[in-house]
Write a protein that binds this DNA or RNA. Structure first.
Lengths: 150, 150
DNA sequence: CCGATCTGGTTTCATATCGAGACCACTTGC
DNA sequence: GCAAGTGGTCTCGATATGAAACCAGATCGG
């Protein structure tokens, strides 16, 4: 049986995260959820995703604790999908993707959307990785170590 | 013709980024590249990816300017795949995924790897989103606006 | 310097997954 | 009460994936 490979057990948090939200649609659904989308039809028409796919993705994301269903906020009998605390934790992943996309995937004159702080109306700052002492780090200032429990 | 949907033209940097690196393997390949993996065989045995898939992914990532080939650093006639500047820009995406995975996908006693600053040996700080004025922002302190060129 | 092995792929094949659209039950609007 | 909207499920053909066979050129052992 040819099955999609899972790297859940690889012990790397990146692999495990991608095992959960690394498919084609999940992060786009989550992005829309951050933008306030809650209803099945809104997701479907906004993303152009096939209904069957969307149903599967919403079920998986709910089962994995990233979304949860709630009664419709407008009082109708329908339900809504909203981000859990765990799901909201993906915000910085979305922001990191957004900043990379803005930097590398647009021509200088291409229109694009922008993330701003509601309070000030100004664009947010760039994400930065810092050491515990506050120093800004680049990729080659860091390394991955194995933590063993032995 | 049923083709995998592309959201390149949606005007959202997140969608455009996922169009480039949003498939199952790309970010894992890039993660390994950050960890110093450079040769075809290293990627293949490390990830357990099928050779055909790996060849396709390496070609795509190279064509999209995320990897580039270079002569082998050990003087042999083989080539190596190394991250371009654009590819290195994905570091914070990997870090964001790593931190989310560490927070939400491990039991308290499960062994995991950790990202440390080489200089101090201490774990890196959490990523934070800040406004232009330095204030830390959460997801509902922000909004996405359309920038029009009209 | 010659055969064995390693590297870096390509090709082929069976199966899994995806996208499109038909279909359907329940809800809501009129 | 009936038409339209919502939130799905089912089926089908097209595509992508994983495994394995195969292969050319580079390297290694002797």
């Amino acid at each position: 049986m040819v099955k999609r490979v899972s790297l859940w057990d690889a012990g790397c948090p990146v692999a495990r995260a991608l095992d959960v939200i690394g498919d084609w649609w999940s992060l786009l659904i989550i992005r829309d959820a951050f933008d306030g989308v809650r209803r099945f039809n809104e997701f479907q028409s906004g993303l152009g995703i096939a209904k069957g796919m969307l149903a599967t993705r919403l079920r998986d994301l709910t089962a994995r604790g990233i979304l949860e269903t709630a009664p419709a906020s407008d009082g109708s009998a329908y339900k809504e999908y909203v981000l859990t605390e765990k799901g909201r934790g993906l915000f910085l992943v979305i922001v990191a993707l957004r900043q990379w996309g803005e930097d590398h995937l647009y021509g200088p004159d291409e229109p694009r959307s922008s993330l701003i702080a509601t309070e000030t109306g100004a664009p947010v700052a760039r994400l930065e990785l810092r050491a515990g002492n506050g120093r800004v780090l680049t990729w080659d200032d860091t390394e991955v170590i194995k933590i063993s429990t032995i």
